[in-house]
Write a protein that binds this DNA or RNA. Sequence first.
DNA 1: TTTACATTTGACAAATGATGTCAAGTAAAA
DNA 2: TTTTACTTGACATCATTTGTCAAATGTAAA
Lengths: 102, 102
Amino acid sequence: METVGQIIRAKRESLGLLLRQVASYLDIDQAILSKIERNERKPTKDNIIKLAEILKLDKEDLLIQFMSEKIAYEIVDEDCASKVLKAAEQKVKYLKSNLVKS
Amino acid sequence: METVGQIIRAKRESLGLLLRQVASYLDIDQAILSKIERNERKPTKDNIIKLAEILKLDKEDLLIQFMSEKIAYEIVDEDCASKVLKAAEQKVKYLKSNLVKS
DNA sequence: TTTACATTTGACAAATGATGTCAAGTAAAA
DNA sequence: TTTTACTTGACATCATTTGTCAAATGTAAA
């Protein structure tokens, strides 16, 4: 299973782009991008959106990978992780059905 | 569907405990507990554990409610929320199977 | 080997968000 | 009207996140 970092690095290299080129498009230091690609730092949502643009990756797919990775790391240490995700699904449904902008 | 705050308030009142009594057990100001019960602040994990103790609630259940609520709020605004949760399930499985302590 | 370039690393700074305190406010019962 | 429980909002403190920078490392061509 590929991490977001691995996906990004593979695609960047296949496009022949340099860290500093992509980082400049994201408006961050290349050091951060280097770390993101090696899973040493987490990208922001904005990073992901711009990465999808410049690397020609599907934006929704990449966002799903990004968010699910974040959630997975939050709960992987719990032995009730699976129950948490199922409960979260119910809560999301409930929240969406009651969604009133505040 | 009950929120963690609602569960806590209902149980605290049914036990006849005061905000300041419970808050003191949690080692926080009663203002925070008041806000937690009204979903104006999020409890910490430690808060949840101590709340389960003093309110005689099932600790695992309460933790599941707490964590799933947190996750639900993180993704409720995404229209791909359901896909994210499914992807997260896969990632958790993968991470757990490869779990090596670092 | 030297040079040039891409990437990595770690120390640190700035910004943001989470967590908490406090004191004054409301409301209702004694 | 005094007391009691709770609520509210301004603010302080602290941790985490996000970023910068410059030096170190690796690598391959001149």
